[in-house]
Structures are given as structure tokens and as C-alpha cells.
Nucleic acid binder design. Structure first.
Lengths: 203, 203
DNA sequence: AATCTAACACTAACAGTTAGTGTTTTATAA
DNA sequence: TTATAAAACACTAACTGTTAGTGTTAGATT
């Protein structure tokens, strides 16, 4: 099994992209519920089974790039500058992600998501996956070690911040309010939390 | 339209309960995925459409009492003793709820939920509803007023605590770790948070 | 050139869910 | 009591997302 020489992979990626593009276009034109899987498959000129070999579900057609999202989050932790504090790094990345979602170009898609119960539900499960991945990254972070429970809790809080900010009228203001809360929660898990001296802000 | 004199309501509740009991029994006997809606309806001796007039979905059959859950949470806020601090009251209730879920009698049901993707996903959306209800209760709480954003964030954190504790090997220990984090996050939203003096613990 | 594999296609079906329609039961008004 | 309205229930038939089973084709490997 050597490396694939490309054409096959390119064709596969092209088919996948064509399906995703077609789906999104139809969903935005006629509404998510009004478009059936068979419509998407026909318009993309593939069989229904082919569609499902590229996407696990109808909802997954809309969240095509959620792996990017997850990678950006975990890399904000694992790839940050040495000794850079964790929470501010996450804050920066979450802000960037929220800006990305609330940009004008993405607005119609998110309006569609917010008005479809099926899509909202699906997004919640996607967020859970992201929270788990983030928790793993945080737990593996060097420096003063916190418990796994603390890591998982902070990861959820960060995902909550993203979710609340995305829905807020003023995302930046929401983050400005929530992230100090997260910072305080994080400080309290510090190994030196029992130290009566001034709180350390080193991470 | 006067008050219903009972018989009709009792019959309706009985039908609903019979459906729920039958469903849970079959699910536990044969596995959630192996039991179809038509099986449940037949065994409960009702029509499929009747089943769906009592429950919105197959998953809802399993989360029959989720409104109780929501009420207990919101009442832990709205019905607590005057001047009782918010977070400890929530901690007590969450601990009771987690104990309830992890009790031996409920264990098989939760094992079923944890192993079925469809049920896990559904539970996530139920938790979101609970978080929203809790946020409303917190926002309406008298005393030092916090912003709506802060209320929503704390509500999510509390639901996260419940969820993480329920899955943890030692639920009590998990709550002992997470609730101080929530308390710290809550303190930071206090109107006197900018006060350089000692932190108030009054609510 | 021979061959192996992965992507794709097609049919048919299954499972959850709903629309449409009609029947029975219950509560209340006359 | 009887008449009437409303709610619960039943039945059929369909729609929609999803999958199993089975080939077929195009690309990669030898």
C-alpha cells in the first residue's frame, strides 16, 4: 500500500465537495426541511448511497467542516507559545471562531441552523465532541497539572462560552463577560489554590 | 370550559403511563435499537398514532420524567430559603439528582442511554432545555443582579457539572471539584467584584 | 495486460414520523 | 335525560432518513 497518486483522492474529494455545495445551495434556496436527501443526490448527480458514503447523515451535510473547528480549538491549546497562559489563548481562538460564524457570509447558514430543531440538536452533539477533544488537549497540557475532571469542566465551559457568544447580540461583549468567569474557575483548580498568598497568574 | 372532573385525565395519564412502562420494559429486555415503535404500540395495545400523541419521539419514551428534573432544578433556585446563597443550594440539588440517576434501580436505564447514540444525543438537547429554564430562574433571582449573560453561563456550568458527575466514577468527588469552580465563576460576576476588599460570600 | 480495490450505482427495504379520516368516550349544556 | 362539543383513540397509507445487498466501473498495482 503505497501513497495514493492523487487522482482517485482528488475525484473523491471533488465528489464530496460537489455534494456538500449542492446540499447547502438547495437548503438555503428552499429551506432545510423542504429538501430531501433524494433531491440533493439527484441534483449532485450521485446515488443516495454514495451521498451517505461521504456523509453520515443529512445534518452532517451542513456541518461539513466541523473538524477544522475542532482542530483550531485543540491547537489553540497545544500550539500556543511556551508559557502562554491557557485561558487567554482559548479566549482569543473562541473569539476568532465566533467572528467566523457571525460573519455576513456565514449568517444565512447559521440562521438556518438556529431555526431547524434537527440541526440545533445535531450541533449540540458536535459541540460535545469538541468539548471532549478540548478536554483531552487541556489534560495533556504541561505545567501545573490539574485533575481530569477539572480539565473536562473547563473544556465544557469554554464550549459554552462559544455557544452563548454565537447566539448573543454582541458576541464580543458576551465573551468579555464569560471568560473572566472561566478564568476564575480555572484559578481555583490551581495546585496553589490553597496557598493563602496572592493568586498566581502564571497559567 | 370548567375544570375537568378527573376521569378523562386519569384515563389519559394511565394510557401514557402504560405506554411508557411498556416501552421501558421492552427496551431493557431486548435493547433500545432492537425494539421498534410498532412493537411498543402493539405490546401496550394502542395505535402507533396514539403513542405519538403522548410522546413526541421514540427517545422521549425513555426521558418520560424530564420535566420533574427541570422543576427540581428551578425550584432549587426559586424555592430556597431567603438569603440562602445560590450556588450551594444548586450544589445540593445537583448532588441529589445525580444520586437519583446513579442509584442501582436507575442504573440499567442509564447504561442503555449511555450506549445508544440516539439517546445520548437526545439527552444533550434535554439538558439544553434544562439549562435555559435554569438560566431564566437564576436571572429572575432577587438580590444583587447579574447580567443575563452571566445567568446563562452559570446555568450551563451547573448542567455541565451534573452531566460530568453523572458520568464520573465518583460523582460526589466530581461535584466537590467542579462546584468550587462554579462558585468562583459566580463570585466574579458579583457587582462588588471590582471591590478590592475581601470577597463577599453573601450570595 | 492482468488484477485488485475503492468508489459508485441501483433496488428494495426498514424504521420513525405524520397526514388524513373516522370512531368512541367523556364532560357539560339544554 | 338527551344533545352537543371536545378530546382521545384507531386505522391506513404514506413520506423521509438510512442501510443492506449486489453489482459495475475507474484507478492503481503488479
Amino acid at each position: 500500500m503505497t501513497v495514493q497518486s492523487g487522482r482517485r483522492e482528488r475525484k473523491k474529494a471533488a465528489t464530496r465537495q460537489k455534494i456538500a455545495d449542492t446540499a447547502l445551495r438547495l437548503f438555503l434556496e428552499r429551506g432545510y426541511d423542504a429538501v430531501g436527501i433524494r433531491d440533493v443526490a439527484a441534483e449532485a448527480d450521485v446515488a443516495v448511497t454514495t451521498l451517505f458514503s461521504h456523509f453520515a447523515s443529512k445534518e452532517a451535510l451542513v456541518f461539513e467542516q466541523d473538524e477544522d473547528f475542532e482542530q483550531r480549538l485543540t491547537r489553540a491549546v497545544t500550539g500556543r507559545a511556551p508559557h502562554e497562559p491557557l485561558i487567554p489563548a482559548l479566549r482569543r481562538e473562541v473569539l476568532a471562531l465566533v467572528r467566523h460564524c457571525t460573519a455576513d457570509s456565514a449568517a444565512p447558514v447559521w440562521r438556518m441552523i438556529d431555526t431547524s430543531p434537527a440541526l440545533r440538536k445535531y450541533e449540540e452533539s458536535v459541540r460535545m465532541r469538541h468539548a471532549d477533544a478540548l478536554a483531552t488537549a487541556i489534560a495533556a497540557d504541561p505545567g501545573p497539572t490539574r485533575s481530569e475532571t477539572a480539565a473536562r469542566a473547563i473544556a465544557r465551559f469554554v464550549i459554552d462560552a462559544y455557544s452563548l457568544a454565537r447566539e448573543a447580540a454582541d458576541p464580543q461583549a458576551a465573551l468579555d463577560e464569560i471568560f473572566p468567569m472561566i478564568e476564575a474557575a480555572w484559578q481555583v483548580t490551581s495546585p496553589s489554590a490553597n496557598d493563602p498568598g496572592p493568586a498566581t497568574v502564571l497559567d
